[in-house]
Design a protein around this nucleic acid. Structure first.
Lengths: 336, 336
DNA sequence: CACGTGGCCTGCCACGTGGTAAACCTGTGG
DNA sequence: CCACAGGTTTACCACGTGGCAGGCCACGTG
């Protein structure tokens, strides 16, 4: 049987409401009563009922984090900082995985949990934004990931096109001639892949290189295995790239592993650049040059903006919050 | 303004309670009413209030997963499967990070969230079990990780001593003579480190090797950086190990990276075995031999047992559920 | 002395739901 | 034609909390 404010009140010798007032910091309470109530709370180990409080106030102090997969390093690191930032603000975090499935994503956005949570942070996969902004639930949503504009939603993320361009130009500056791209998606709804590919293409073409479709390797997902597969296919095609820009660090890890199996030396035979700056790339052999988005900042901003939108409904206007990024040079693109 | 059963009822032309009955599958309802109520629910997009339902029933269908750090691969993978298993059972998962801090761990176990959640899955760090079993909150707890017996709590995990012994014996069987251990902890409350060290020692001594304290490298944590530090220290000590068993895969990754920086070849100069079988080790250069606990099984068992303990209070007796493990041989311990 | 004034505390209500038990309706047998 | 049974629907209550408004008391002022 849970301890309620009634129990505390009877021990402290006050009314139940006074206990509530003490807990909520109501200004006009005598120091004596405050002491007695707090003592009773401590004695009984009273904990407010989250359910009752939520029912009364309409707030749950819970947010939902919707990501594709928790064990993909980028999302794990992002989740770490989201949970950390939320804890500082006394918010609980419910994590929902979409597994890249649009239907799961839709349920996460429109379902019971979205209604329960005060707000959601969504790392979208494939949903077009129209679905999102037309949903019934009225709790705010903050989008993290690609800065896909247009909607009435707040977006937080780096400029993917510019970042991909920077990464590719780095390879061009190294003097590489045949620069491949790993991680293109046949599905045009994957904005992330589209934007990173666009950045790659910009850099290639503005450097006067020809854009060769044969150097674009499509992948099913963004895991290590996909990167390894793509690398093997690129090699088998006979086009013999001397550099590759991978849409994610995990793809790059798989690609580097495959390169080694093929007998290519990284970076001398093949320079590799990734995207995400997961910790793994700081210790891999060789260490991985990559685009580093400030994940901690993304998480902090997302939680901060969400909290603002929760406290003040009008704050949920669709703003774009750019986050800084940088190119981290490591062994995988050292000069020959 | 949220849609409630009243709104549904007025559209369907029935009482509010009938709506509740339809939702909860009460047996005696005319097909006509069921149809009308369901139509009204769909029309309004009604979603039951989690808060009100929780207040009434005392159940939240939410569990808490308490782990040290979400971005440590082992926990990320474990969390993935916990969330997956929970979703199948319509349970929401709140993730709390302890960051290895006993105080945070205590709060997670005794605090408001533990009370709110129907139960918690805890990957303990340093708390002695007495604290846990004497807590006030009465929601069940399932421990995952080392099988630290004794308490009245359910434990799920592999036999750490036997697993560590198997890993170390593998190095012995390779003919290695000076086998180091990375990941010992000065704090004796870290059962995980103690058990894996004990297994290492068992294997060393039963093979007739001397147990050399100089080959035991202590670490502050279990991250890649700690492994790298430890490797450098081992090398600087002049003891020149020809093999090392690391308490976690991340330590092994750091150790392998440091070995390379030092100029040691893995596995020829130094064989390395890890523990956890994180995906990274399947693609690293070299790939990592490791102890593979069945993380998916651990997660499934944890969620299953927790659900059982929730539905039936008597099921929360302290049982020990062993999980299978195996040694995965990879490049880091290939024959010279 | 009477009357505010303001600090302190309390009673009442509603949030949305599910359990309990009673009311209703329909058809059947005496 | 009435009583009864069983299926169907409903009224009432409680879960634990915070907002609101009002009551009580001591003190200072006219």
């Amino acid at each position: 049987m849970p301890v309620t404010q009634f129990d505390v009140a009877s021990i402290a010798g006050v009314s139940r409401k006074t206990v509530s007032n003490v807990i909520n910091g109501y200004p006009h309470i005598s120091p004596d009563v405050i002491t007695r109530v707090n003592a009773a709370i401590a004695e009984l180990g009273y904990t407010p009922s989250r359910a009752a409080r939520s029912l009364r106030t309409g707030r749950t102090r819970t947010i939902q984090l919707i990501i594709p997969e928790l064990d993909v390093s980028y999302f794990a690191e992002l989740a770490r900082w989201v949970v950390t930032a939320a804890e500082e603000r006394q918010l609980a975090v419910i994590i929902t995985q979409t597994l890249g499935d649009p239907e799961r994503e839709r349920r996460a956005i429109e379902g019971e949990l979205a209604e329960y949570a005060d707000g959601s942070i969504l790392s979208p996969v494939s949903s077009d934004l129209s679905t999102i902004s037309q949903r019934r639930a009225d709790s705010p949503i903050v989008l993290v990931g690609e800065l896909a504009g247009g909607g009435s939603l707040t977006h937080i993320g780096i400029d993917n096109v510019a970042a991909a361009e920077l990464a590719t130009r780095h390879l061009i500056d190294l003097g590489r001639q045949r620069i491949a791209f790993i991680g293109a998606q046949p599905d045009p709804s994957s904005r992330m892949a589209q934007m990173r590919l666009a950045g790659y293409r910009n850099a290639i073409e503005s450097a006067g290189h020809p854009f060769e479709p044969g150097l674009i390797a499509h992948t099913v997902g963004y895991h290590r295995a996909d990167g390894a597969d793509a690398m093997h296919r690129l090699f088998d095609s006979g086009l013999a790239p001397d550099a590759v820009f991978c849409a994610t660090d995990l793809l790059a890890m798989g690609a580097m592993r495959a390169a080694r199996d093929i007998g290519l030396e990284v970076p001398s035979d093949l320079a590799v650049v990734g995207f995400d700056d997961i910790e793994e790339g700081r210790y891999s052999v060789p260490t991985l040059t990559t685009i580093s988005p400030d994940k901690r900042q993304i998480a902090e901003l997302a939680v901060t903006r969400l909290e603002a939108a929760i406290d003040d409904d009008s704050a949920s206007n669709g703003s774009e919050l750019p986050v800084s990024f940088s190119l981290i040079r490591r062994e995988s693109t050292e000069e020959k």
